[in-house]
Design a protein around this nucleic acid. Sequence first.
DNA 1: CGCTTAATATAGCCAC
DNA 2: GTGGCTATATTAAGCG
Lengths: 84, 84, 84, 84
Amino acid sequence: MPGEGHNSAGEELRSLVERVERLNEEKQGIADDIKYIFLEAKSRGWDAKVMRKIIAARKVDVDTRQEERALIETYASALGMDYV
Amino acid sequence: MPGEGHNSAGEELRSLVERVERLNEEKQGIADDIKYIFLEAKSRGWDAKVMRKIIAARKVDVDTRQEERALIETYASALGMDYV
Amino acid sequence: MPGEGHNSAGEELRSLVERVERLNEEKQGIADDIKYIFLEAKSRGWDAKVMRKIIAARKVDVDTRQEERALIETYASALGMDYV
Amino acid sequence: MPGEGHNSAGEELRSLVERVERLNEEKQGIADDIKYIFLEAKSRGWDAKVMRKIIAARKVDVDTRQEERALIETYASALGMDYV
DNA sequence: CGCTTAATATAGCCAC
DNA sequence: GTGGCTATATTAAGCG
């Protein structure tokens, strides 16, 4: 452990731990906000499961996906595989 | 799907989706901050894995933790294992 | 814990634990075999990273993927999003 | 890509990929077997989570485990925490 | 509340 | 040997 013999070692650790805990709380708060939005959407008749799929799909940048496909297809064609 | 026939249905869905996406970005930002703190801690000589255990332990009370440990020791003893 | 008072409880637990451990060893052996194949492929000039992509792509059944896309596109069109 | 111009290059790649796929299937089969054992254990009243901890513990020797625990306690004490 | 799926954490591997 | 990356294992969330 760092700072052996210095009484400030515990303070440093405490500070690091508390910073993480504070951020974890913020993160949880945001997760709660998201959950609330899905509840709201559901109450308006939308399907949360499909919404999640859309959000996941949008997360993958189109260009990145196309680049990946080009790379994959180069090799896939060598296998004669049916990659749609 | 709600609002079939109203052109505002897509807008409502879009709004909901974008609100979730915005919050997801914030959440990811915080996750990155946390990761950075663990890197900083590591660079100062602290063990990130142990820190995570400490942070998890601070979330549950002493009794709960003792019960979990007692259960593990019971299983270990049933196997004739040295579990310290 | 089950079998409280029966001396066979520990035997049952031991049996379950040892079955899992045995299977874990087998699984590890196969993982080693796979690692060896990638080393062999590399020595023949193939790119392991791309091979992994191909393997992952083949794992997703084409029909399943197309069904998912149809579902996603239904909703995506409501957002006017450019899902390629 | 190796063997450019030789029609056997694709076949070599295919062979490598299929060998990996075959082993992945075997590996998955074993993973399923393990999952089944935990279900069986659960149905007999054992706690799968505790069993996993026991199995993990059996992989490391007593000294290592004691050192890890001592480190956690050192951190906890630096924070003035009750860690039992 | 159990069962399935997503998020997170850990560990192993590879390249630098 | 350190740091990023991938894969696995564990945990939490969501859904019926």
